[in-house]
């Protein structure tokens, strides 16, 4: 029954800067099925967030050079503003990393959730009168109904005392609570796909565990697909069905979470896993990846990871990356997949 909901093909997003063109996303392809949780991981500057923003067409000031984003049969890259607005209204919802900067400080949480409900109900028309609450033009019953729906949503995402909290302002909320309010706003639209851009990075582990649990429950109850952008492999292992590993604006490896994390077929995934403190003995120096993320200004040549990779060779520095099938639905884009698996076998 796995029906493809979102399909990204050969997406190129660029930024024109004074130093030259930044190739932030360079030929990314992946797909999300209905009800599936897909993780996108990589270091800062690997193009994860720009990919996510391109999906809902918030890539400005960048631009999509070429490629396609198909969401539920709608081609997003050349859709008009009205269609895009529609999709944002009830198709894709996004939760951003910093809830303080994305919530409006001058409206109460309840009003912001109600606005989201209004957008969902009539994505085409947003009458000014709907917002002014003039007695003659807006019915009191409908307003209290929407308020009740906002309260229901708030309790659904786990905000305690929603009846009193509904009229609170963002500054009265703690970080975890704000992130839950963001989630409520996103859920008010009953989205088919939730795009979550590092929703738990700024939060404590205990709150993070709670929010992840909440996302998982919602995924199961509402059959909502989730695209989870994160740099924490732990979060991916915890939550996702499928993972896309990104580096230098390109997909390095893609596959089912169990496969990729226990049996990585790309040197970058392997190095990233090696950096986690859990994988090292106590008191021993941690494994590191030498060098730093490439600047991505100018046309990239060859594998973006070549300069930091322990098994890179001459063939890595130029030409297209091959896409190697290394298992069921598991692909790795590396010239040295075979050598890598041989050396890993030798280690064991």
């Amino acid at each position: 029954m796995s029906e493809t909901l979102l399909e990204v093909e050969d997406l190129h997003t660029r930024f024109a800067t004074r130093e030259g063109t930044v190739h932030a996303v360079e030929g990314v392809s992946f797909s999300v099925d209905r009800g599936e949780i897909v993780g996108v991981v990589g270091e800062s500057g690997s193009g994860k967030s720009v990919t996510a923003r391109s999906l809902i067409r918030l890539e400005d000031p960048g631009y999509i050079e070429r490629g396609s984003v198909r969401f539920d049969g709608i081609e997003m890259t050349d859709a008009d503003d009205r269609t895009i607005r529609r999709v944002r209204g009830d198709g894709m919802a996004m939760v951003f990393q910093d809830p303080m900067e994305t919530l409006n400080p001058v409206f109460s949480i309840g009003e912001q959730i109600v606005e989201s409900i209004k957008v969902h109900e009539s994505p085409e028309k947003q009458g000014l009168l709907d917002y002014l609450n003039v007695p003659l033009f807006s019915s009191r019953g409908k307003r209290s109904q929407m308020r009740q729906r906002a309260i229901d949503l708030m309790s659904e995402v786990g905000i305690p005392h929603p009846e009193t909290r509904v009229s609170a302002y963002p500054h009265e909320f703690s970080g975890g609570m704000r992130q839950r309010a963001m989630l409520a706003i996103a859920l008010a639209r009953e989205p088919d796909l939730l795009v979550a851009d590092e929703p738990t990075t700024a939060l404590d582990v205990t709150i993070q565990a709670e929010i992840l649990q909440r996302i998982r429950d919602l995924n199961e109850e509402l059959d909502m697909a989730v695209l989870m952008i994160t740099h924490d492999l732990g979060v991916v292992a915890e939550l996702c069905d499928k993972v896309v590993v990104m580096y230098g604006g390109q997909v390095m490896e893609e596959g089912p979470v169990e496969d990729v994390l226990t049996n990585p077929k790309h040197p970058y995934t392997e190095s990233l896993l090696g950096c986690m403190p859990q994988t090292c003995a106590r008191g021993e120096p941690l494994n590191v990846i030498e060098g730093r993320v490439p600047s991505m200004v100018g046309e990239p040549t060859g594998c973006p990871f070549a300069s930091r990779c322990w098994c890179s060779s001459e063939s890595c520095t130029s030409g297209e990356l091959p896409t190697e099938q290394v298992g069921d639905d598991h692909t790795s884009r590396c010239h040295h997949v075979e050598e890598l698996s041989e050396s890993m076998e030798a280690e064991q």
Binding site: A209, V235, E238
Partner: peptide, 20 residues
Amino acid sequence: SAIPSVDPTKQKERVILDGD
């Protein structure tokens, strides 16, 4: 128990606290 584990095969019993 709140620390996410990198090993997806080792899903542990989780204790989640209510509220803030």
